[in-house]
Amino acid sequence: MSAEAVGTDSTPRRFLGWLMNPWARARFLWVIGLAYIAWTLLPVAIAVAFSFNAGKSQTAWQGFSLTRWYLDDVSSVWQDDSLRTALLQSLKLSGLSVLIAVPIGIAFGLAIDRWRGRTSRGANMVMLFSFITPEIAVAVALFLYFTQLATVIGLGLKAQVFGLSMYEMAYPVIIVQARLLSIGKEYEEAAMDLGASQMQALRRVLLPLLTPAIVASVGIVFATSIDNFVISQRLSIGASTQTVPILIYSSARTAPLPSLNALATITLFASTLMIAVAGLALRSASRRDRGGVAATAKIGLPVAGG
């Protein structure tokens, strides 16, 4: 940018003056912010657009076709066996992960918040470690476990579900803990003072208050499971247990057809939908007790390990 400013032409200099004008709103920062959004979102938008390409190219636009790569072509998502299998496998895997990870994660989050002792602190520590250990280490450990020790289970869908639900469990735990922090203990104590047993207080008071956190957990666990690559790849065996990210990984460089874009677009749509649900749930909850945009940002924060 400074190279332009030195030029004799006055237009760049005037542009720079406009950009850096200290009396106007920070235009410089606005340009950075907008450029960043374009940089992060445009490539994905282009990839989505190419799933509607009328031709076979992934680099040249050949006209618009709404359904060729989704339904019509022999190699579309609907008709190609490997693509359809991958989509079904992804849905199955993330659905099962949600079914396991969310209930046990919520229960765990509640338990370690209420029951403070050495054992619970230790368990919480292990859970946090499972979350920030680089995923490849977790995946290799699980791979060796299922091939050397737990050979009864072996590799495949079962192993993928077990491994992934363990790895994803941290999300509900963290979300519930954050929510418990803002709820406080008063409602529960009040219920128990009025004669409710611990179980009744939990079921009739705490659980309704935790509904947004549960909904958010379902959304986030589903979205991150459907996008999971490292663990599901390491624990997959053969084509029947390939998920969408595995398929993208293995065929991205081999000049794939736009049907791969279509497949990616479908999963993108599914995970965006789930995240939107999660975001709205957390937002409505935070508006009720604390409010503000910062609380919405929380759904981004728990992500530490990749």
Partner: peptide, 27 residues
């Protein structure tokens, strides 16, 4: 809020898809 949503969006997109998008762009 609009910016926040736009900034959080890539978070929840499949990493593979984001890389795949660049593979096509960088051909």
């Amino acid at each position: 809020t609009a910016f926040l949503v736009a900034f959080i969006a890539p978070f929840w997109m499949s990493y593979m898809m984001r890389m795949f998008a660049w593979v096509n762009l960088l051909q």
